[in-house]
Design a protein around this nucleic acid. Sequence first.
DNA 1: GATGAATGAGCATTCATTCAT
DNA 2: CATGAATGAATGCTCATTCAT
Lengths: 207, 207, 207, 207
Amino acid sequence: MRQIDDTADLAPQTDRKSVILAAALAVFSEKGIEEATIEDIRQRSQASVGSIYHHFGTKEGIAAALFSQGLDDYWTQLIARAQGKLNAEETIHDLIAAHIGWVTSKPDLARFLFSRRQAVSPAYEQAIRQRTADHFKALFALLKPWFKQGALRRLPADLYAPLLMGPAQEFSRQWLSGRIQLDPRIATKELSLAAWRSLVNDPNGST
Amino acid sequence: MRQIDDTADLAPQTDRKSVILAAALAVFSEKGIEEATIEDIRQRSQASVGSIYHHFGTKEGIAAALFSQGLDDYWTQLIARAQGKLNAEETIHDLIAAHIGWVTSKPDLARFLFSRRQAVSPAYEQAIRQRTADHFKALFALLKPWFKQGALRRLPADLYAPLLMGPAQEFSRQWLSGRIQLDPRIATKELSLAAWRSLVNDPNGST
Amino acid sequence: MRQIDDTADLAPQTDRKSVILAAALAVFSEKGIEEATIEDIRQRSQASVGSIYHHFGTKEGIAAALFSQGLDDYWTQLIARAQGKLNAEETIHDLIAAHIGWVTSKPDLARFLFSRRQAVSPAYEQAIRQRTADHFKALFALLKPWFKQGALRRLPADLYAPLLMGPAQEFSRQWLSGRIQLDPRIATKELSLAAWRSLVNDPNGST
Amino acid sequence: MRQIDDTADLAPQTDRKSVILAAALAVFSEKGIEEATIEDIRQRSQASVGSIYHHFGTKEGIAAALFSQGLDDYWTQLIARAQGKLNAEETIHDLIAAHIGWVTSKPDLARFLFSRRQAVSPAYEQAIRQRTADHFKALFALLKPWFKQGALRRLPADLYAPLLMGPAQEFSRQWLSGRIQLDPRIATKELSLAAWRSLVNDPNGST
DNA sequence: GATGAATGAGCATTCATTCAT
DNA sequence: CATGAATGAATGCTCATTCAT
């Protein structure tokens, strides 16, 4: 509440607040937000109910804190990885690789982030959407040069996310749920190829 | 659970059981399974609690019935639409079109089907996976000829679903949640093109 | 909820709802609304928590039901007793006697009714005030003839309740809290005399 | 509880302790003792929880300190005002006037003092009763001369408080709760007249 | 004296489910 | 088949109080 490191990244920390957050993530990832109980979190974190509420106010407050951190972490890594590439194909490949890499290295957080279903208040939902939209815009800026250069196709805005991230996203979901065994690293090549092919401006394209 | 007509389609009916099912679908779609209460369903359906339990046994029983029906309906339409096509491209296009068409015409059911998160018991979960796998296999059989013919690429099995359905699936999710405005019919062309490009065996492909 | 006898008086009944109400009254009277717990009421009533909530919705709902019944019972008896008297003095005497009589015969209800302190929602508070005002107006109508006849003094409206009921009210409070031992029946004579003297139009009065 | 200056009057002070007390009074007056939380008091007083507990030990300790001070202040003013009067009527009038004056000038304290409902421990309750009884006895001593002189009626002891203070007390309660608009100053005359008439030894009295 | 993180018993309320009518 | 009163375990949350700094 008055700690300096309020922008705490997701690296393991040991102050009570972080411990609670880590426990909550584990529980949320396992059972989903609704199914998770404060008691679950209390047991895992070894904190008291009062302490949990002292720091987060409500159960949704915990989810919100986690969500906020997670989202920023995800997008930050995505954008960092795709910056300063030499051509469109490489940019797209690295985006997908960053996505898969992030999901693979933080599966709990990914499960939590990508499976949410209006578990947060409408007000907060709005804030999240805005932030996601901003992040996506930043990511899009990275592709700007290749659009200007004519390497990438101009499409209705709503299509970019599905075409670019759809395959990787679908793969991630299935992998996170255990329905898929294939090593994500191996999948990266094909998933980024799919993204590339659906966005590349190919004069000899089959359509 | 105790009925013969488990394969009841999703056409509107007026017997008590169907009314309850329809009410449940609406409620589940709005609030999610966990958040929905029997009381919500009771109010929407104008049935009594006792009656609901008489027909479905448990809350999960309602979800299961709905899920079962929904899943079959979805796959049936998908496969029906993609049968007997003349070439690979058309087959794939029609699959995507069928998906988008189904989602568009039954948004509540789609929201319910595609947002589930282990809301059903592990046992039932298993059954569903099996059934989904079977359905997917049937769908895959439709593509068999084009594989044999060399028109489609041979890839690790786990990749087909993400590549084929990923973009459309991602688009659907966002459209169902209201984050996307673009008319799904218009999106179909690009979404199926994306699927086609990532699966087509193109000797001059960019990889 | 769908019983016919919704206007149940406060006579002992045996249906679950009445049993709960009686138990709640006892508990509220003993510890006050805030201090009373649902668990207290449950134990006394031998009902289940669910049953209590099924009938009353909230703890405040129980208090409200009790309050509503109690208020009506009190005023009804007050007015019934003071009707059709031959002169002002008798009317006033019987009003006070009725008040004391009611308090004496239903001490729990009286304690509950007269000690409330915004324990009910503002909305309900408003309704109660209106009803009390209406009842008081009805009571006032009983005194009309004696006003017209010149036997009673004309005063600012806000003074009538304090002058008429003040002494009896104060006596009741103290008696109910156990601070006073004096038999209420014996007190009645003096308390009604006080009310009479402060309202009578005495040409030779000391003011 | 651990201070010397327990007889601190109620004049505004600025040391931490007084600030807390003032904040507590405001909160208690608004929501009642039970409903008020330490957190409410902390916010209003800008003190820390620890500081509040350092000074008062328990929540009830705050209420007790307030109650103690308030009670003494009330009775002190009452008795001061009614001392040295020339006759019974004037004494009684000034008592009522002092009561109304006090209530009017310190409404929060009055609300707190007069609405309490066993919010304090039985032990403390006993102490308060004793003190109130003592104070009342002191007040009664002021009326002694007029009793001896035969101006005032001899009645059962338990009746004096209701007859003397009842109307004013009832008026105060209603005024404090906002149910009455009439200016208390204007009401004083009638309220004291009522007290006078019910106590005066009138050989030609109407009974 | 002051601070606020931590504690945990306790509470109102919810809700799936049962069952007598 | 239908009804809805009854059940009680479970849950999110509150709040007075303690105590290390």
